[in-house]
Design a protein around this nucleic acid. Structure first.
Lengths: 207, 207
DNA sequence: TTAGACGCAATATGATCATATTGCGCCATG
DNA sequence: CATGGCGCAATATGATCATATTGCGTCTAA
């Protein structure tokens, strides 16, 4: 009965409830009692599986970032298989991080809430930095591939370019989320412009 | 004795204390009692001048954004007077918003803390959107000026470009602040690359 | 000179939370 | 059938806060 599998499932059950709470009421809306209620369990259970609230939050954030990363990797593989242009691949995977529809808005809100708290909580910052670095590597790899087939100028520093693209997407995300007056086409056009800056060429081979 | 001037000074005294608290302990570190202590006054005084904590925070944020905006305007005038290149002017005023030294880190932390809360508090979001729009206008104006003297291609949409540049700077700021492993030169280089994307030319006349 | 309003201090109130404590049912094992 | 430990539920504890209340000194104006 003490299966590890079972324990893991309970931890996830609570962590998922935390995500839902953040999406609905923001970070401030998360309390031990509410997390328990949302997960349909008792406060005692939550305490049993997490040594403190910080521990719970760190676990929940790790889950969020792992999911984001897994999606990025999956998408990269998918596109490698289909051999589309690198620029197209980058556009897709970057645009996916923008809060342009309700589902993405909810996800974005959760991820951003954690990022904002990471400014004060080094634990969360560490989780975040690890993930961002992995995503940057992913982007940098794609850009490097682009060099080989002429989509990207040889003198481009792939790692720097990845930093810039990722930062742009995060900034655009914040604006998009907060300012309903900002039209989505403008946001996407700016992403496109930035991509054009990095990948002036086009090619059909990938990887 | 009931001079308006006096009232204003007290309000500012408390609002400044709030800023210091955020810079030192983050948004969570702000309580009515601590704000009063930091300002060197009683809790009663704070309550007397602000109808609620939210009111106090909104006032403090308004002050922060007004200062940022005033600085942007001042810098624009300064550069118009000296007639440097527009690209130089944009670089300066954008780089200024990055947390690259301790003073800017503190300012950035305060501004970001408010922006993060703005996700949940529409009052703060309104304050923010107003300011961001003004700064974007400022940038857009500079870019438009660039068209007249050939620094900027005629087909560029100045407003869109401003959105992109501002978003990039905000994203770079977040990365810079959270990730000490990210070298400052890379961040500045990416800002430069983005500027090159918008202003491929150079010219010496401004305004 | 006194009535009252204003500016503020001190303290009370009550809500909310994270966490500590206690104990109970159930299952495995002896 | 004991017994002991594990998984949890229920509740207690104490801290922290925003805000309400109360009252006091001082300046103003009649």
């Amino acid at each position: 009965m003490a299966t590890e599998e079972y324990h893991l499932a309970r931890r996830r059950q609570v962590a998922d409830a935390v995500e839902r709470l953040i999406a609905e009421r923001g970070f401030e809306g998360v309390t031990m009692a509410r997390a328990a209620a949302e997960a349909g369990v008792s406060v005692g259970l939550v305490q049993h599986y997490f040594s403190s609230k910080d521990d719970l939050l760190r676990y929940a954030y790790t889950r969020v970032t792992e999911r984001m990363l897994a999606r990025a990797l999956h998408r990269a593989e998918e596109l490698a298989a289909h051999r589309g242009s690198i620029r197209l691949a980058l556009r897709e995977s970057l645009a996916e991080r923008l809060p342009l529809d309700e589902a993405r808005r909810a996800e974005w809100r959760v991820a951003f809430a954690f990022a904002a708290r990471a400014v004060d909580l080094p634990d969360l910052a560490a989780v975040r930095n690890r993930t961002e670095a992995a995503i940057r590597d992913q982007l940098a790899q794609a850009i490097t591939n682009g060099k080989e087939c002429g989509e990207v100028p040889a003198e481009t520093d792939a790692r720097s370019a990845a930093v810039g693209l990722l930062a742009l997407v995060e900034g655009l995300g914040l604006h998009t989320y907060l300012d309903p007056a900002l039209p989505a086409p403008v946001v996407l056009a700016e992403l496109e412009r930035a991509l054009a800056g990095v990948l002036p060429g086009e090619c059909r081979h990938y990887g």
